[in-house]
Design a protein around this nucleic acid. Structure first.
Lengths: 207, 207
DNA sequence: TGTCAACTGGACTCGCGGTACAGTGGGAAG
DNA sequence: CTTCCCACTGTACCGCGAGTCCAGTTGACA
């Protein structure tokens, strides 16, 4: 039982690294099998097909990402209790984190599966969808909290603003991959941060 | 000669539609061949392999996209001569356009190739890169023009701001595909527009 | 001692990308 | 009228990767 968990996890680890590096389609089962030092039969014992692998990977990714956000904004909250400043600190931490992990951000996988969706089954697509909807809800909640304290300077759709966090990260990662630069995603987040600062700037209330 | 051009264009048209719908990898050569009513041999007569097809498609996409931006901002310029207002109008037009073309935005292809890049050769990757650098240059130029008239309220990296146009579009399209909604990209552009309005808002100079 | 989970190993099918190449039909050049 | 070549057609063939099937092995635990 323990050995099973180990092998399964090992497969996921190796697949994860390969997929982040090369993309899902470019990662062959033979390669994973060789990396994990198991037989092809062993692979199919754990995952009925490549879709099942994709599903398991996505589930892990999303859980990791959620935990990361939880941790990030919890740390930000410790540093400042104000919802706006907490958000700004959290985004700063996120930007720094993205600069440190060169290619390996889970977000990749969302975009990657979104653009090859016909290769995946409904389960994978639905996981993808739920992940983004989850982030929308999370950030919309935070922005609504901010808006109660700082009235937005321009009217904004809060769902769209929540989506913008994911969108800016995804878009930044696309740029980063295509340009072969390494800090585009973090720069995009810093610009989004500037947007929030301006959007929720206090209305000429001097200190 | 004329017939050659026709067949080549027909292949590109059919491939384009299929790729926008399903992604590059999910589009088989057999399918394109059937759609274009030619033989497999005929396909390979025009394109030495799938990479050559990808390159030709990308070139067309990028040219179309550039022409689209040219046209869009030329129309915006006719409506208003001020660089900031021209930008805001252009983005509004872009958002409207994105809402009208449900899935078929060229931007897809950039992101799609970026995430499967190991499947493509250096030529394709370089095309991709140059396209994004071209847009960076284009929009940075426009933002610098704006900044000469309206001093930005917060310091911003002009390259990153230029990239943000592409990034927001790409990110929006990723969300749109994953969520199976249809107006995310245009909403993200409208939010970016709000950002620009705040960033370049005149400093309390009454009219 | 027997059972079961967790594999191994090998043989096989299928679809897809890609190669090779012989042949063909039509239009322009001589 | 012939010749040539461009733009194909059609067929046979290869290799790779996904996925199936299944018989057999090994070690832990009841």
């Amino acid at each position: 039982m323990n050995q099973q968990v180990d092998t399964r996890t090992r497969i996921l680890d190796i697949a994860e690294a390969a997929v982040l590096d090369k993309g899902f389609e470019a990662t062959s089962i033979d390669e994973i099998v060789a990396g994990a030092e198991i037989s092809r039969g062993g692979f199919f014992y754990h995952f009925k097909d490549k879709n099942a692998l994709a599903r398991a990977m996505l589930e892990r990714y999303i859980a990791t990402e959620d935990a990361l956000y939880d941790d990030l904004f919890a740390r930000a909250r410790e540093l400042n209790d104000d919802p706006l400043h907490c958000m700004l600190i959290g985004l700063k931490l996120l930007a720094e984190m993205l600069e440190e992990m060169p290619t390996g951000h889970p977000g990749c996988v969302i975009a990657s599966t979104a653009y090859q969706d016909r290769l995946f089954d409904e389960g994978v697509r639905e996981l993808n969808r739920q992940a983004i909807l989850g982030w929308r809800k999370r950030f919309r909640g935070m922005f609504e909290e901010i808006a109660q304290v700082y009235e937005p300077r321009e009217p904004v759709n809060m769902d769209a603003l929540g989506d913008m966090v994911s969108g800016v990260v995804e878009g930044g990662l696309v740029l980063q991959r295509a340009l072969r630069e390494h800090n585009n995603a973090s720069e995009q987040i810093m610009l989004f941060r500037t947007f929030l600062k301006l959007l929720f700037a206090p209305r000429q209330q001097p200190v």
